[in-house]
Design a protein around this nucleic acid. Structure first.
Ligand code: MN
Ligand code: MN
Ligand code: MN
Ligand code: MN
Lengths: 227, 227
DNA sequence: AATATTATTTAGCTTTGCCTAAAAATTTTA
DNA sequence: TAAAATTTTTAGGCAAAGCTAAATAATATT
């Protein structure tokens, strides 16, 4: 139906719309997709013709309902394949993304639905990212970052916003994964780094790290103020 | 490494080299790939530059060792994916080909090897076609057509040379699949059609059909001559 | 408000892979 | 073996998707 390139643009626009308050600009897209701005402009004109995006020269782009639902279908496939690679094919969570980037473009309604069924209709991929259902609806979940919490809180890891291989390997090294319990021992005031207890080890996490770890509350400390 | 188009050409050349005595011509390729002869000529020049084929203007084409091993790698992926679709995802054997056509181009050494392992290293795909191993070696098997046998012989189905959806559905209707037992009841002299017993039913198979069914001997009749 | 800076778009070029029509080579037939 | 038929190649185009450089619009600065 649409080319791999078109699908990658739709997905990138979707992710940028989610992660930033303002609209999606040509330059942000060109950075995300590692292409030149001129190429982006061209593609946006094509996508607009196909009614997948609203594009106004010089004023950025947004997905139409049609474009959004196509983007969600690609994301669904991407995350289901990642789940398959980790659960069935012994892939590590830091090596699935590249392959899923290819598999997400395979066109077959039946393939996706049977795969979903075969895997037991998972709600989250190996990185904790939500998997849209066949109708494009995301499972309910609350995104709170580790950096928002305070000394004494105990939390469960539910996802990671930086999916880079190096960050995932860093987490592996410290034995932090989905559903790992973390408790905050102390917070350095000057750089907001946290001393965190994980499986009887205490490790230091930079602010960059704590902002990229999504958690749910397991047990909240009674303290009203940060110490 | 190579484009989808290039890979499809390599696969087509491989299949044509296998199935015909003479060399592979531009026109045979253009028919196989549903493209025009002019497009084939161009692609052959590109493939020759990449040392994947031996191409001599006006005198056809053949695979180099490099081209052959790449073709076998694609065929390996194609057949492993078909096996996966049938065994794990409830696909019927007549609906796997199109999807495998896409999946065969996914690039990941680890993916193929893990998939092979996950599936239990199968030797034949759902149509009975042999699956090359990681080194590109095909499992031993002897191809004899049902049409070669005589009245009284009992045979086991081992494959089909026409993989069209309509032929596969015809086989389904008559409950003929891999490892089905067939015994030859009679052969019409004028058109060489066969009356064959399958699971207590007798069905008539045209010569076209019997030529497209590969079998192994289960029990040979004592008759020396056709009746 | 005018100018400087930055972002975006346009223009023109490239590669891949396909097409049609014309030319050239090969093969068949007489 | 020469003419006819067929096959293959060449020439010239087109669309997708990228690029660089130049032009233009929007935003920031003075
Ligand atoms: Mn991913
Ligand atoms: Mn992709
Ligand atoms: Mn197939
Ligand atoms: Mn293919």
């Amino acid at each position: 139906m649409y080319s791999q390139s078109e699908e990658n643009y739709l997905k990138a626009i979707y992710h940028l719309e989610e992660s930033s308050e303002k609209g999606v600009s040509t330059s942000k897209l060109s950075e995300e997709l590692q292409t030149k701005a001129a190429s982006v402009t061209e593609m946006l004109k094509r996508l607009a013709e196909k009614k997948l995006v609203n594009y106004q020269k010089y004023y950025g782009v947004s997905l139409t309902p049609k474009g959004k639902s196509w983007a969600l279908a690609i994301i669904r496939k991407h995350r289901l394949w990642e789940y398959f690679l980790v659960e069935c094919l012994n892939f590590n969570w830091d090596e699935v993304h590249e392959v899923a980037e290819q598999l997400e473009h395979i066109q077959s309604k039946k393939l996706v639905e049977e795969l979903d069924c075969f895997l037991g209709r998972p709600s989250f991929d190996p990185h904790g990212d939500p998997i849209p259902n066949a109708a494009g609806v995301l499972p309910e979940f609350k995104k709170r970052r580790l950096s928002e919490f305070k000394v004494g809180d105990t939390l469960i890891c539910k996802g990671f916003s930086d999916a880079s291989s190096s960050f995932l390997q860093f987490l592996d090294q410290h034995k932090i994964g989905l559903d790992t319990l973390l408790s905050i021992k102390s917070i350095q005031e000057f750089d907001e780094s946290m001393l965190v207890k994980v499986r009887n080890n205490e490790i230091m996490l930079s602010k960059t790290a704590t902002q990229n770890i999504f958690v749910e509350i397991y047990k909240e400390s009674k303290l009203k103020e940060k110490v």
